[in-house]
Design a protein around this nucleic acid. Structure first.
Length: 286
DNA sequence: CTGCATGTTAGGTT
DNA sequence: CAACCTAACATGCA
């Protein structure tokens, strides 16, 4: 659930709260949530100051003094809560961060225990080894770069959008929403798509991601931000989770189908599969 | 009870 | 190597 817009919302909220604070105690209640040993994890953070908070793809990056970085990936059901220290512990609270001279805590929760926290030394230019394989940020690359990247692959469009090596941060919800807005079938082979259509997809994807950030993310199941507030983009979804509902563009019933192993929602009328243009290729041969 | 769900990774096959 | 499929992770919900 937390995809780029949700993680961006969390990061923005966190930034205002925890920048410049210094970790006092870090308590790990569930060892498997942290990559390293709980002792090493806690001692790598305690006594260090938070310099700034940023996002890369779906990762939350908390830069610390003396070259350490706290990395958090929420996966499916992970969440962070910024609460007064005396607030009752919510169930499934796996890590608790306290700050020197501050009456509030940051807590990590995760019902399915898939989320992961780790500490890492930043390399040259602040690079982090574990994020080295991530593709570019969809809100930072140009339309030209995007098209060139798509052209280097031969596969279906939706699994490609979900591939974090291809683009960082796009998940199931925003892939479906962008494809509907660009009128592309999730199973469409990319090698058939013309420049015009790729440009349309690029702008649709950015529009969806920006709109979702503006709305504070999409709350379909469990997602709320670090202050416990729900997002608002679920009201603006055109296809995701709307199987059987009317397409907002043409009224046709929205279908749901597995593509690359994930449920995909789309309008069979607005999003048709394009076949290779045979007349073009024949002309090419002649 | 069964089946399914957001993300990622590992491992295998084509 | 690229693309693709499946299973696994652990829990909650319909």
């Amino acid at each position: 659930m937390p995809e780029l817009p949700e993680v961006e919302t969390i990061v923005r909220g966190l930034r205002a709260k925890i920048t410049h604070l210094k970790f006092s105690k870090v308590a790990v209640n569930l060892n498997k949530c942290v990559q390293e040993s709980p002792q090493f994890f806690a001692s790598s953070l305690e006594g260090r100051r938070i310099l700034f908070v940023e996002r890369r793809g779906k990762n939350i990056i908390i830069r610390l003094s003396r070259g350490n970085t706290l990395l958090i990936h929420l996966r499916m059901t992970g969440g962070l809560r910024w609460v007064p220290s005396h607030a009752p512990m919510e169930k499934q609270t796996h890590v608790v961060f306290s700050f020197r001279g501050h009456p509030w805590q940051l807590r990590f929760l995760d019902s399915r225990q898939f989320g992961r926290l780790s500490v890492e030394k930043s390399g040259a230019g602040g690079n982090l080894d574990s994020l080295a394989d991530l593709g570019p940020e969809p809100l930072e690359i140009s339309a030209m770069e995007f098209a060139a990247r798509v052209r280097s692959k031969r596969r279906a469009i939706k699994p490609m959008l979900l591939d974090q090596h291809f683009l960082a941060g796009v998940g199931n919800i925003y892939a479906d929403e962008a494809l509907h807005r660009a009128q592309i079938h999730p199973r469409q082979r990319v090698e058939v798509l013309e420049d015009k259509i790729l440009r349309r997809l690029y702008y649709a994807l950015r529009q969806v991601l920006r709109g979702a950030i503006r709305a504070g993310g999409t709350s379909v199941r469990t997602y709320v931000d670090a202050n416990g507030s729900a997002g608002g983009f679920q009201k603006l979804l055109r296809v995701y989770g709307r199987e059987g509902g009317a397409c907002r563009s043409c009224g046709t019933s929205i279908l749901r189908e597995k593509v690359g192993g994930r449920s995909s929602f789309y309008c069979p009328r607005c999003q048709r599969i394009l076949k290779k243009d045979r007349s073009l290729s024949r002309k090419f041969i002649a």
